[in-house]
């Protein structure tokens, strides 16, 4: 079995941990747990006749102010950046954040995920797509289990590249 380190990055409270919980445990907890530093989860995924053990590093933040050790980003095979569709401050500087992650991790691509779609209408999401400076790969809801599997499947595929 292949083992791959993958990153899940994004500001506090965007729902990274809920996405992981939904993907790994297939459940959603209403209790909000603020992530401090990093949380590691594992999940074995079968993809293209290959079993991949994902080591998901759920990292809180990227910027210098958030003081995340740079070593967290090293050695990863793929990364997913999560922002909160309902909080503008989590996606306004998205292009800079993505650039920073690419520099820290050495990765060429980062999957962009807008989470908490259950809090917005389709029109509002359409408007956000226009504002966000990069292409959003997935619009997810950990609460309603929407698109979570798809986002992680793409993450797994990218880790095998």
């Amino acid at each position: 079995m292949i083992a791959k380190k993958v990153l899940l990055i994004g500001s506090f409270g965007v729902g990274k941990t809920s996405l992981v919980r939904r993907f790994v445990l297939n459940e959603f907890s209403e209790n909000y747990i603020s992530t401090i530093g990093v949380r590691i989860s594992t999940k074995t995924v079968a993809i293209e006749d290959e079993e991949v053990k994902l080591m998901i590093w759920d990292v809180a933040g990227t910027s210098e102010e958030e003081n995340v050790p740079k070593a967290y980003f090293l050695g990863s095979s793929a990364a997913m950046y999560v922002f909160d569709l309902s909080r503008e401050e989590t996606y306004l500087n998205l292009d800079k954040e993505i650039e920073s992650i690419k520099n820290l991790s050495g990765l060429d691509e980062v999957i962009i995920v807008g989470n908490k779609r259950d809090l917005l209408s389709d029109d509002e999401i359409f408007e956000i797509r226009k504002i966000v400076p990069v292409t959003i790969d997935f619009i997810t809801s950990a609460k309603e289990n929407a698109n979570v599997e798809g986002a992680f499947n793409l993450l797994t595929q990218q880790s095998l590249k």
Binding site: K5, V38, S41, M55
Partner: peptide, 14 residues
């Protein structure tokens, strides 16, 4: 053990 290895690495890096 995989989880322990990951956490050890994170603690070490931290």
């Amino acid at each position: 053990k995989d989880m322990v290895s990951g956490m050890l690495t994170a603690i070490k890096s931290f």
